[in-house]
Design a protein around this nucleic acid. Structure first.
Length: 136
DNA sequence: GCCAACGTTGGC
DNA sequence: GCCAACGTTGGC
């Protein structure tokens, strides 16, 4: 199983909305590297849900519900894909960007190295470390 | 509000 | 194919 992180501005599409809707197809990605990561997702993979810009914190865990399919919000025939995600659970405590940066075990975290990419891989040990930071 | 990073576009 | 201009993202 692989691990990932997706970003969303809470003002655009928040974790609360995501939970309320019991998941959503992750549409709107228009960057090739991010799209490649979407294509690598497999059902059951776990995905950290990160609130960018206003909050800058990991707030929950989602799960890949189905493999990538063409993004219905893109033009027909375009290369863009969407991946159905569903909520698993909120973190007991959000883990802030500052906390991530302060953890030496997360020095290689893709989010910190490539801050503009919206769909990123997370190593298993990084995933575990972040979950531990978000536990009560 | 500013700016760095970085991707895309278009002129040459 | 190069590179300047420009747009977007996201942290500060």
């Amino acid at each position: 199983m692989k691990h990932w992180l997706v970003k969303s501005e809470p003002e655009a599409y928040s974790w609360a909305t995501f939970v309320q809707e019991d998941g959503t197809p992750w549409t709107g990605v228009r960057n090739y590297q991010a799209r490649n990561n979407l294509n690598l997702m497999q059902p059951g993979d776990l995905v950290l849900y990160y609130h960018s810009v206003s909050e800058k914190a990991v707030v929950g865990i989602a799960e890949v519900a189905a493999p990538a399919h063409p993004d219905a919000t893109a033009e027909a025939g375009s290369p863009w894909v969407a991946v159905p995600l569903r909520p698993v659970q909120a973190l007991a405590r959000p883990v802030s960007l500052a906390q991530l940066k302060a953890n030496t075990r997360l020095a290689e975290l893709a989010l910190l190295r490539q801050s503009r990419l919206s769909v990123l891989p997370v190593r298993p040990e990084e995933f575990d470390a972040i979950l531990a930071m978000g536990a009560k």
